[in-house]
C-alpha cells in the first residue's frame, strides 16, 4: 500500500513537471517557428525577385527548406484548384505545427501569402519587407515571453506536483 502511494505521488509529480516542460517548450517552439516563418518570407521575396515562379512552384520549392508541413498543405490545396486565399486559410488551419502561434501571427501569414498572388513585383517586395519587420517584432515578444515564463512554468509545475501530493496525503 505504501509502495502504491509512493508510485502515485511520483506519477503526479512527474505529470505536473512534464506539463510544465511542455508549456515552456511551446514558448521556445513559437519563437523558432516565427524565425522559420521569417526565413520563409525572405526566401519567397528572393525567389520572386530573381525567378518570378508561379505561387504553386514557389511554395513547393520553398517548402523543401522551411515549414514543410505547412507548405505541403498549401501546395496541395493550390494544386487541387482552390484559390490562393482558400489555400492559405486551410493550410494555416490544418497544420498542427502552427497551433503554437497566436491569432495575430496566423493572420499576418494569411494576409501576406494571400496578397502576394495579386501584387506586382514592386508591391511584393514592399509586402514581404513589411511582414518581415512585423515578424521581427513578434519574434522579440516571443523571446521575451520565453525568457520570462519558461523557468516559471518549469518551477511552478514542480511545486504544483508536490502540493498535489501533500494535499492527497
Amino acid at each position: 500500500m505504501n509502495n502504491m502511494k509512493i508510485i502515485g505521488a511520483v506519477l503526479i509529480i512527474l505529470t505536473s513537471w512534464l506539463t510544465g516542460i511542455m508549456l515552456s517548450k511551446r514558448l521556445s517552439q513559437r519563437e523558432e517557428l516565427l524565425i522559420e516563418l521569417k526565413q520563409l518570407l525572405s526566401e519567397i521575396k528572393r525567389r520572386i525577385t530573381y525567378e518570378m515562379p508561379t505561387m504553386c512552384d514557389l511554395i513547393s520549392n520553398c517548402g523543401t527548406q522551411y515549414l514543410k508541413p505547412f507548405t505541403d498543405n498549401m501546395y496541395n490545396s493550390l494544386s487541387g484548384g482552390y484559390t490562393i486565399n482558400e489555400s492559405v486559410i486551410s493550410a494555416v488551419a490544418d497544420t498542427p505545427l502552427l497551433c503554437v502561434l497566436q491569432d495575430c501571427e496566423k493572420q499576418l501569414i494569411t494576409d501576406v501569402l494571400s496578397s502576394l498572388g495579386a501584387a506586382d513585383s514592386t508591391s511584393v517586395r514592399e509586402i514581404t519587407d513589411s511582414a518581415i519587420i512585423q515578424l521581427d517584432h513578434y519574434i522579440g515578444l516571443a523571446q521575451e515571453n520565453r525568457q520570462k515564463n519558461s523557468k516559471v512554468y518549469f518551477v511552478t509545475s514542480l511545486y504544483i506536483g508536490f502540493a498535489a501530493v501533500i494535499l492527497m496525503i
Binding site: 508561379t54 484559390t83 506586382d120
Partner: peptide
C-alpha cells in the same frame, strides 16, 4: 476577376 487571377496562376507579378 477570379478567372483572371486563376489564369495568372495567382502570380500576377510573373505576368506584370
Amino acid at each position: 476577376k477570379d478567372a483572371f487571377a486563376q489564369l495568372c496562376s495567382y502570380s500576377v507579378y510573373r505576368f506584370q
